[in-house]
């Protein structure tokens, strides 16, 4: 099982957080932690998502990037790590 941390920037639009969570679950990633905040000046939300899966993180990044309101998805390599089960 691999652990990853994603930092996602998104327009502060309806249900954007639900969309991200739905895609994350459906694509086979377990959500271990989440924090979200919005910059009210720019209306850009920043979501930090800690996930784990046996699948490659690239699969999830590509799927989240397809969501209409997403501006950027970054994998934080300094935090992501492989767990030895």
């Amino acid at each position: 099982m691999n652990n990853y941390q994603l930092t996602i920037k998104a327009d502060d639009k309806q249900v954007v957080l639900e969309r991200i969570l739905q895609v994350t679950r459906y694509r086979g990633f377990l959500i271990n932690g989440i924090s979200a905040k919005v910059n009210t000046g720019t209306n850009i939300g920043t979501i930090e998502l800690m996930v784990s899966s046996e699948r490659s993180i690239g699969l999830l990044v590509d799927q989240i990037n397809k969501l209409i309101d997403i501006k950027e998805v970054r994998v934080d390599n300094s935090v992501s790590q492989q767990c030895i089960a």
Partner: peptide, 14 residues
């Protein structure tokens, strides 16, 4: 339906 649409549309609006 907005919530139900998340998994079966490319995008949705209310």
């Amino acid at each position: 339906i907005f919530g139900l649409s998340l998994a079966c549309t490319k995008h949705s609006f209310q």
